[in-house]
Write a protein that binds this DNA or RNA. Sequence first.
DNA 1: TTAGGGTTAG
Length: 640
Amino acid sequence: MRSLFNRLPCKRLAAARRSRRCLHSHSQPHPLLATFSRLSDDGPLPAALALLPDLTAAGVRADPISLCRLIKLCVRHGTANDGRLIHDHVSRTANSGGEAPDTGLLVSNSLISMYAKFGLLHDALELFGDMPHRNVVSWTTVVAALANAGGRKKEALRFLVDMKRDDVAPNSYTYSSVLGACGTPGVLAAVHASIVKVGLDSDVFVRSSLIDAYMKLGDLDSGRGVFDEMVTRDLVVWNSIIAGFAQSGDGVGAVELFMRMKESGFSANQGTLTSVLRACTGMVMLDLGRQVHAHVLKYERDLILHNALLDMYCKCGSLQEADALFSRMPRRDVISWSTMVSGLAQNGRSVEALKVFDLMQSEGSTPNHITMVGVLFACSHAGLVEDGWYYFRSMEKLFGIQPEREHCNCMVDLLGRSGKLDEAVKFISEMNFEPDSVIWRTLLGACRMHKNANLAAYAAREILKLEPEDQGARILLSNTYADLRQWLDAEKSWKVMRNQGAKKEPGRSWIELGKQVHVFIAGELSHPCSAGIVQELNRLIRLVTDLGYVPLTEFVLQDLESEQKEDLLKYHSEKLAVAFAMMNSMKGKPVRIMKNLRICGDCHSFVKLVSKSEGKVIIIRDPVRFHHFQDGVCSCGDYW
DNA sequence: TTAGGGTTAG
């Protein structure tokens, strides 16, 4: 310091001396404060923390700016215990004199934020409750913490009301936080209205949260409306709308928006790419997914993005690429492992799925409840009843995971599929949960598979008790009656549906070709190439008939003459898609088809034979699993 | 000192 003073020119020297006198006119600062200030800025964190006990013992509180910096450093590199050391120091020392009254607030707010980031909501709320004064930042920090914590969204909204009552006006930070807590359309509309009222609706942060909130509630139109009204958009806003479309299952819409985003001059970042991959996953757009992969290479450390890529390969039925990616990934978390376990299981490779699960444990990764859903799914779809029981019974002891509804549902599926319907019923009556409609629907599906109409009727009635509006139960019930050729009962069930104005969801299949997705609807010849498709379909039918194909008319729902039945079967959406794919596919490349409903038995045997006669790998993904057809055999082993 | 978007199952 002295040497610096000596080098200063005369006039500035006098001024500096004045200011030095000024500094010294107060009590001498503690000698450790300067070091603490430096360490809180650059770290290392442990060295800064080590000074705190001495300062506390001397009764000297570090300056608020340094403390806030240290808290930030702690959030970045530290543990909750380190954070508590800072809190302890602050509560055991008095605010030094001469500071503005708000400086205490500054540190308290930082501490609340830190506790929230460490997931210690209890400590955050306790500190908030002890504060003599709270400003908009204090309130917002708590609102954000509650909105981001699972299951505390209603409290976040209550705090918004309380802060207004306390005469603290919410700002754009508060609104962008609280929007994530709006769980119903009514609440969201009310919060949106107050945002407009206070004039914060043009804020770009508030807008992106609004878009996200609408999309998460499934209100795509309102989300799109907020997006369309915007004059200036940033990358996050684009990402919000693309993510919204991708998550709502409108993959084509998401990709269209992505193209528009690029035309507007924005470059995709990790968030964008993740959403685009999700869109590819939903629509089985493997080629586009591969193009995205090229951009993912830039972000080799981004686990979320890599997990999305892994899932895309799994759900597009390309396990080779999934496997290659998985083995190259430098880091894997529980989501990577779970994705791989489920991916293999859904593709009919249950034994490998269980091997990956073993590998996961031997590499020291701990499964979570979703991993276990994948494991049980693997067992149920391969008929591995004993293994399923083993994992179900030991998951709590081995991994501390209590069986939840989803796991019970997998068990009902496991028992039901394997024909142990009585055991499935016993399991339902003995489980720790009241059976919900999902469980009954699983049992109903098993009843249909094993043609047990009485039990099916019972399960369907249980579903309708819980969800009187649900037509799925009636459809499955009538399908069961149709399977048993109990046409009168089937018709009765259909009549109720007709009276209620219900329509069976039409079967839809789609396929990615070039940069386009081609959609086929059961019984509709709406595709521009329909004439050619029908011709191709007839050719395929002739070929497979020579190989022994006989239409399995039991998969038609209504009681029709057998020729009509065949006609209905002929135009199932997956058959139209297969014919179209045969006309356009590249030699040696597998055909990938996606379906909105489960594949029917007739189409299943048809596609098996087409794969044989055409020497083609055909992969069909239904909402639950995959069928890899090759050489007349399906990966599901006819068990699905 | 406070805020927005992205991954696994069902």
